[in-house]
Amino acid sequence: MSSDHLAHQHHTTGAAFGIGTFTCVRCGLTVSAKSADGTRRNHCPSCLHSRHVLDQIEGGPSECGARMSPIAIAVLRTGDWTLVHRCVRCGELSSDPVCGDDNQLMLMRMAVRPLADPPFPLEAFGSL
């Protein structure tokens, strides 16, 4: 039995039981496609990496399929955090909402990363 046949079989059984899992392309963690609060997950909760499967510009599926690395945290008007991903192959950007069980340490690391090495001295802002 070939390996891709096995993979196909695994995929069909996962779908038949309604489990729906995917394997992270960076850290190899097998995660469920649904998060704890029932929303659909599109990035690994451990390393926050994603995969380029949706074309953000014209919509529909994308044929790139490369890894997307998290680059920034953005804040919506509601105060919720959003994760901005960038495809390592074609450079396309996408934004996905943060799940409740995402790695908080990685999120906080990304949020404070601009302040670690500012392009101008921040001492002047103390006197404002």
Binding site: A72, V84, R113, P114
Partner: peptide, 8 residues
């Protein structure tokens, strides 16, 4: 286009 966030 409004600024959304900063990345390094």
């Amino acid at each position: 286009m409004e600024p959304l966030g900063l990345t390094v």
